[in-house]
Each structure stands twice: as C-alpha cells, then as structure tokens.
Measured scan of single mutants.
Amino acid sequence: KAKLLVLLYAFVATDADTICIGYHANNSTDTVDTILEKNVAVTHSVNLLEDSHNGKLCKLKGIAPLQLGKCNITGWLLGNPECDSLLPARSWSYIVETPNSENGACYPGDLIDYEELREQLSSVSSLERFEIFPKESSWPNHTFNGVTVSCSHRGKSSFYRNLLWLTKKGDSYPKLTNSYVNNKGKEVLVLWGVHHPSSSDEQQSLYSNGNAYVSVASSNYNRRFTPEIAARPKVRDQHGRMNYYWTLLEPGDTIIFEATGNLIAPWYAFALSRGFESGIITSNASMHECNTKCQTPQGAINSNLPFQNIHPVTIGECPKYVRSTKLRMVTGLRNIPSIQYRGLFGAIAGFIEGGWTGMIDGWYGYHHQNEQGSGYAADQKSTQNAINGITNKVNSVIEKMNTQFTAVGKEFNNLEKRMENLNKKVDDGFLDIWTYNAELLVLLENERTLDFHDLNVKNLYEKVKSQLKNNAKEIGNGCFEFYHKCDNECMESVRNGTYDYPKYSEESKLNR
C-alpha cells in the first residue's frame, strides 16, 4: 500500500503543469573576455578590431598615390635624371617610397634638414613645378651647363633637372645676384646647392675665386655659405661634395641669391598645395585598381571598426592602431551559463540550468507544459528593451572611439638618435595607453552587458513569482510547478501579467 502511494505521488508530481523562465541559446562559437572571465561563450557579439588588409596600394578616395619607385624624396625633388618619370607629377593622395629606393642625390652630399622637408611634404597633396630662374636668361655671365658622370643618364654625363651647376664663363666668375618674388599665391619650395671641391685647383678651375661665398636671403631665411675645400674619400667617382638646401617662400615674399662661386642654382621650384589627408609611407606593396579610405604600408583597410592592429602608420580615415589581438564586445547572452554566478555589478545569474535553442524569437521568455502540450514563448517587451539598450551602447562606444585619422611616422637624422629613441618611447607609451583603454573598455562593457542580461532574466522570474504567489511552488531551476490546472489561456495570463490569483487560489489551497 505504501509503495502504491509513492508511485501515485510521483505520477501526480510529474503530471503537474509547469512554467519556466529562460533565455535564448544557439550554436554560436563566439567568445568574449570580461573583467572576471576569459573566453566566455556568448550567443552574439561584435568585433571592434580590424585585423585584415588587402595587401595592395590603392587610390585614396579615388585619387591615385605618387609612387616614387626607384627614387626617394631627395632624388625626386632635386631632379635626379633617373627620376625623370616623376617630373610630370602634379597631385596625389599620398606618397609612396620603397624601403630600398636607390636614386637620391646622384652627386654625393646631403639634403640639409631632410627630415623636416619630409614632414612638410606629408601635408602636401599637389604642386606646380615651374621655372623659377629661366636657364637661358638668368645667368648671362656664367656657364650653366655643368654636368657630371655621377648623374649620368643613358650613358652620358648629366645633372639634376631642377638645378643648374653654374661655373665660370671664360676665365671669370663675376659676382651674381638674382631674385624671385613669389607671385603664386601659395608657398613655394625653393631648392639650391653649394659645391665643396676637393682641392684649391678644382676650386680655381671651376670658379676662378679662391674665397667664394654663397648667400641666400628671404624674410624668414638668411644664410651665408662658404665652400669647404678638403680631400675626401671618393664616392660615386667624386672627391667633391654638394650640400643641398631648401626653404619655403611665403606668398609675396622675395628670395635673393648672391654668389661669387660654388652656387648650384635653382632652375625649377614648386608651388605647394596642402592636403590634410596626405602623407608619406614606405612600402613594398604594389599598386592595383582599387579604392580605399584608409591606406597602410601593408595594404588598404576598408573598415568602419574603431581599432586596427595592422600597422601604426596610416593615411586617410583609419581606425586607431592598438596592439590588441582581440577586441570583441558582447551583444547577446551567455551561451554556457554559470550556476549560481554573481556578476561584478550585482546581477544574479545561473538559476537557469541552460539556455534554450528552441526559443528563437527572443532573448528571454517562457517554456510551459500542461495537458494541452508544451512550447516556448519569447517575452518580446523585455527582449526589445534589451536590444535597444545594447545597440545604443555599442553604437555609442564605437562612435566615441571611432575617431579616424592619419598617423604618419616621424623623421630623425643620424645625429638625432637620442631624440628618436625618446620619441619611440613616448609613442610606445601612448600606444600602451590606447591599447589598455580599449581593452579595459571592452572588458568592463562585456561584464556589464552579461550582468544586464542576467538581471533581465531574474526580473522576469520575479515578475512571475509575484503573480503566482503560493498558487505554485519554485522547483529550483527557474521553473514553477502549479498547484492547479493551468491551461493555455492561464499560461498566457502569466506571461502577459494578467494572471488571476484569486481564481485559482482555492484549487491551489486544496492541492498544497
């Protein structure tokens, strides 16, 4: 008799109507990190870190770059004969040098303040090359056809396309004075040089004057150069050297050249137009028929994500570079809930034993079982409120962090190594801060989002509990077992918050 009662009780308990509160689960393989956990499985997430590029040089917003090819900045601007293909260059979106560009200054020497000139050019998007001192009329008392084997072109001695090597005419090199007034309405880049012979005999042979000088002056520039005559090792078949100089001439300003020898005179100059998204990159990537809004030396990035880990040097509207390998923000729920887990921000989770793959029309909802059958029903209101809140948060985070910009490298010469090392340390410090901030932001927001979901499920549970009161009992896994019969209409009233407690209280009292 006792065995019969136990079996009867078990049958009745199993047959009781139930309603459970749960949440969506799926077959997603997404994982995120939080402050407290690593690799948390979630139903949905968004990636904030771009880690792919196309490996190509592309047009930037429809404008092609200027590819210097086998030449570098120095060779292009001075007019190395091997860089003749660059003479027609007028406009570009950015400038590309190759790491091993070999054609710079063909006659050995240095372009002074080269690093600063590169910085200036990094904001130039177009130029006009014009004859600042016409070759045939500007130097009537001097020979202007100086050439050298060091600047050979097609097997013949030649010289820079933008400079003139002035030497004596006959047996004399009379003092020369020439000036140019900038009437271009924009900055003009003027380049010139000073020749330093290897011996007094060479000085006399070329310029006749043993104590020659070169003077260059404008409103913002004033220097006097004296040739340094000295024996030097042979470089590119030359014992002599040429140093090259430049200045930016403001609109309306005048530049005056005065010399008694050794002047490498300007022939062509450049009127410059600035462009905020221009820059110089060093890259071996090849040019393709493609378009982008962000270019790196590795390749083009076409992404609206706020961060990238491809390269710190970028041109155009680019994500911020960070050292992170993963920045994924959760938008959905835990896919593998932890039992009795309390989140960092106070939300209680884990009283549900598992997510439901059968509930596909919402994030949170119900599963019921009664004599009429069983089924899932999503709670659309709480789901939609959660979707709206999380979507707004993700968009806000992306908008705040998605300050796209150009980031170019800084140039230092060989004598500025300590400054370069200090600059690298400062840049590394800023990069570490950006990386830390980005990672911390994602970790915190992921923790908040998961706790937010847990709290929403808990609130749904409490909503049902407050309606049923003692007409049902909690069975410990997020479910309630009714003390009365609850048909589909009754189940719907529980879900929509209109459950009639008094209607079922007498039946429940008897069954309790």
Rank of each mutant, 00 (worst) to 15 (best):
A269N: 05
N26W: 07
N39S: 12
Y268I: 08
S125D: 13
V124F: 08
P233Q: 09
D110E: 14
V46N: 01
I280C: 01
L191K: 00
V46L: 13
K59L: 12
G79E: 05
L8P: 05
S172H: 05
E277Y: 14
I63D: 09
S218C: 14
F257S: 00
I21A: 09
W267H: 15
G252C: 03
Q120D: 07
F276G: 10
F159S: 07
H24G: 04
S122A: 13
N103I: 03
A259I: 06
K1N: 12
G210W: 03
T254D: 05
L176D: 00
W92L: 11
C58E: 12
D15L: 12
C20E: 01
H196V: 09
G104I: 01
E82A: 15
L248R: 09
G170M: 12
V147G: 03
K234N: 09
A217L: 12
S199G: 15
I255T: 00
P174S: 14
R241P: 00
V12Y: 09
P88M: 09
H196Q: 14
L248E: 01
T43N: 11
N54R: 04
I112M: 12
F276W: 10
N145A: 14
K38S: 02
K186L: 13
K59A: 12
L60I: 15
Y114A: 13
Q203F: 03
S125K: 09
V96Q: 07
D33N: 13
L272G: 00
L249Y: 00
W165D: 05
G193V: 05
H142L: 07
S158C: 04
F130L: 05
W192D: 01
Y107A: 10
E228Q: 13
S158L: 03
N220D: 15
G62D: 13
T14A: 12
E187N: 07
S208F: 11
A217N: 00
L87Y: 04
I21M: 05
G185S: 14
P99D: 07
H53Q: 12
K3W: 12
A259G: 09
N243T: 04
Q120M: 05
E50K: 03
S28G: 10
T247A: 12
T260I: 04
N183K: 14
R154H: 14
T148C: 07
H195Y: 05
Y23S: 03
P251Q: 14
F270L: 10
Q67V: 13
G279K: 04
T260D: 00
N182V: 03
F144R: 03
G193D: 07
N220I: 00
Y107P: 03
T148W: 03
V46R: 10
V235S: 13
P65Y: 07
L206D: 03
G79I: 01
L263T: 00
D17N: 12
L8Q: 06
P227Q: 00
T148M: 05
N162T: 12
N39I: 03
E202V: 05
H239F: 07
P140Q: 15
Q204G: 01
S52P: 00
V235Q: 11
F276D: 14
I73K: 00
L8I: 12
S273K: 10
I264E: 00
D171L: 06
K175N: 04
G75K: 10
K1P: 08
N80G: 04
P108F: 01
R118S: 05
L191G: 02
E187I: 05
P140N: 10
P99W: 08
G261C: 10
C58V: 09
V42H: 14
I255V: 15
I63F: 08
K70Q: 12
G75H: 02
H142P: 00
V96I: 15
I280A: 05
L166K: 00
I35V: 02
K184T: 02
S138A: 15
L191C: 02
S91G: 12
E228C: 10
K70V: 00
T98N: 01
N141H: 08
I132C: 09
Q203N: 04
C83F: 08
A105R: 00
C58S: 02
P65F: 05
A271R: 10
H44P: 00
I112Y: 06
C58F: 05
T74R: 09
S179A: 13
G109H: 02
V149Q: 15
K135M: 04
H142I: 07
A25S: 12
G55L: 01
T29Y: 00
Y9K: 15
I264K: 00
V40F: 07
N39P: 08
I132K: 06
S93H: 05
T254N: 10
W165I: 03
W246V: 01
A89Q: 08
L7Q: 11
N183I: 08
L163F: 12
T282I: 12
A105D: 01
K175A: 11
L263V: 11
E136G: 12
E128Q: 04
N80D: 06
G185Q: 05
H24I: 13
G275D: 14
D84Q: 13
N80P: 00
T254V: 15
L78G: 01
N72F: 01
R90I: 13
N211S: 02
L5K: 04
L206C: 14
T29G: 06
L77D: 03
Y213E: 15
S198D: 07
D201V: 12
S123E: 14
Y244N: 03
L121T: 05
D237M: 12
H153G: 03
K175E: 07
L66E: 05
W92Q: 02
L78F: 04
E37M: 03
H44G: 08
W246C: 06
L249T: 06
N220K: 12
C58Y: 13
L272K: 00
Q67I: 13
L5I: 14
S126H: 00
E116C: 02
Q204V: 13
T34M: 08
G210H: 13
S200L: 15
H142C: 01
N145G: 13
L86F: 00
T34F: 06
L206G: 01
V6I: 14
K175Q: 12
L111R: 00
R241I: 09
R161I: 02
I256V: 10
T74H: 06
L48P: 13
E102A: 10
F133Q: 03
Q67P: 09
W165L: 05
T31M: 09
N103V: 09
V181A: 13
Y221G: 01
A89P: 09
N145Y: 15
N178D: 06
A230R: 04
I264M: 13
R241L: 11
A25L: 01
V96E: 04
F257T: 04
S137K: 05
F257E: 02
A41C: 15
P197N: 08
K70G: 15
V12E: 15
S152F: 02
L66N: 10
N39A: 10
N182Y: 05
S126G: 13
P108Q: 01
V32Y: 03
R129I: 08
S179G: 11
I21Q: 02
Y173C: 08
E115T: 02
R118E: 05
P251I: 13
Y114H: 07
L5N: 01
R236W: 12
L78P: 14
R161P: 03
T167P: 00
S273F: 10
V12P: 06
I19P: 02
L60D: 02
N103H: 15
T143K: 15
N183H: 05
M242Y: 05
N72L: 00
V190G: 00
T43Y: 07
K168Y: 00
S85W: 03
E102Q: 10
Y244E: 03
L4N: 08
N54F: 15
T177K: 09
K38F: 02
N80S: 13
L163P: 03
A25I: 01
V46S: 01
T177F: 11
R241D: 08
N183E: 08
Q204N: 10
A41K: 12
D201T: 07
I21R: 03
V214I: 13
